[in-house]
Simulated assay, not measured.
Amino acid sequence: MTKSTFHAAPLLTLCLVLWALPLGAQKKKDNLQKPMAGPRATALRVSWLYVSADLGAQKVGRVQIGREIVVAEKSSDWLRVFANTDIEEEHTSDAPIFDTNDTPPPISGWIQAKGIVIDNTPNGDQILMGAAADQEALASDPRGPVNAARTAHLLYRRLVEMFPNSPLAAEAAWRAADILWQLQKADSSSRPSAKEQAPYLRDQMDEDGLKKVIKFYPNTRQADFAAYELLDNKLCGDWQGQEKCPEKESEIYEKYAAEHPESPRTPQALYLAVYRQAVLTDMYTADNNDKKSDAAHNHARELAAKLRDKFPQSDYTARATMLVFKLDQRIPVYGIEKE
């Protein structure tokens, strides 16, 4: 399977069906004629669809930034298209290909070519990357558009779909998946279930996008990022003072560091493992389990030493060193210090 299959193409598929199946068409596959597929495109601005190539014509819909478009024909400065207007695109991984119950068909009409990026547009991948990155920056600005993050997500997706062989495709795929993950994570953390100890009792983020990054771009920095982000679904919500949570989470972070030794996230993973060993040192001490406390203390030292050896310039190394210093000084890392 090639990288071009990173995302399903529901609009393209549906357009092909619409073109291929006129009213009264027979159901037998042998009787279907293979249609000509048009170029894929997307809009960089909110654009109106008209019944004809005329600004005075009746409007039939509005295409938002980053939505899917398939170009049927071109006439001067106008394009006749099938356009995806306001269809939900965030959770389509498990949807049937021919789902006509909940998903409205794309709208056909004429659209001005101004601001439309087509899959044969020169430097089209860079244009989409720039537009997506711009929207992502606006999303972090309190004065930015409300839907800037989701618009950035859509534009990154379009880059991957329209320019699968671009050197920017892996980064765009990762950013698209990351934005959706962060939006879901924020929503999940706002729910009462976020305080549940066991991960399975919380609303889980959809892993499909991140797993596709790992599948289609293996052994890349972006795959390392995706694998690290997936750890969120395995962590406890609230430790509730239970030792099993930091024990399990330390194992999770150490396993990641072992499997992704060159990942930019490995210093952070090792530091978080050090922190959990420091916490366990205090928890075991509070339970008068000196043997386990000493073992956790020593393990924290070992992990901090590994950080100093492999990532001497990282802030996470300095933070881990500080934690070990506190443990050596009998200064609690978790809980309240008692003199």
Rank of each mutant, 00 (worst) to 15 (best):
residue 76 S to I: 09
residue 155 L to T: 03
residue 69 I to E: 00
residue 208 D to F: 11
residue 64 Q to N: 10
residue 125 D to A: 10
residue 104 P to A: 05
residue 233 N to K: 06
residue 298 N to C: 08
residue 195 K to P: 06
residue 181 W to N: 04
residue 78 W to L: 03
residue 334 Y to A: 06
residue 176 A to S: 10
residue 327 L to R: 03
residue 337 E to V: 06
residue 162 M to E: 03
residue 43 A to R: 02
residue 32 L to N: 08
residue 237 G to L: 00
residue 187 D to V: 11
residue 235 L to F: 12
residue 301 R to I: 13
residue 326 K to Q: 14
residue 77 D to I: 08
residue 225 F to A: 08
residue 34 K to G: 05
residue 245 C to L: 01
residue 133 A to M: 11
residue 38 G to K: 02
residue 89 E to A: 13
residue 252 I to S: 02
residue 36 M to F: 13
residue 282 D to G: 01
residue 20 A to M: 10
residue 277 Q to A: 08
residue 195 K to T: 13
residue 248 K to Q: 14
residue 139 A to I: 07
residue 7 H to W: 15
residue 2 T to Q: 15
residue 289 N to W: 02
residue 69 I to M: 07
residue 88 E to P: 04
residue 85 T to N: 08
residue 160 V to N: 00
residue 224 D to Q: 05
residue 214 I to G: 00
residue 202 R to Q: 06
residue 257 A to R: 00
residue 186 A to Y: 07
residue 249 E to I: 04
residue 301 R to Q: 13
residue 243 E to A: 12
residue 172 A to K: 00
residue 334 Y to W: 12
residue 58 Q to S: 11
residue 57 A to R: 06
residue 281 T to Q: 05
residue 270 L to N: 01
residue 275 Y to F: 12
residue 14 L to A: 14
residue 242 Q to T: 09
residue 177 A to F: 07
residue 219 N to F: 12
residue 309 D to M: 14
residue 73 E to A: 10
residue 48 W to C: 01
residue 247 E to R: 09
residue 291 K to Q: 13
residue 121 T to Q: 06
residue 160 V to H: 02
residue 154 L to P: 00
residue 291 K to R: 14
residue 192 P to V: 07
residue 244 K to D: 14
residue 265 R to F: 02
residue 328 D to Q: 11
residue 219 N to K: 14
residue 233 N to Q: 09
residue 333 V to K: 00
residue 200 Y to D: 07
residue 331 I to V: 14
residue 305 A to T: 10
residue 256 Y to C: 03
residue 47 S to N: 08
residue 307 L to R: 04
residue 204 Q to I: 04
residue 171 E to L: 07
residue 147 N to E: 13
residue 49 L to A: 02
residue 98 F to S: 10
residue 44 L to H: 06
residue 322 M to E: 12
residue 25 A to P: 06
residue 213 V to A: 01
residue 133 A to C: 10
residue 288 N to G: 08
residue 82 F to L: 13
residue 272 L to D: 03
residue 44 L to N: 04
residue 188 S to R: 11
residue 316 Y to K: 11
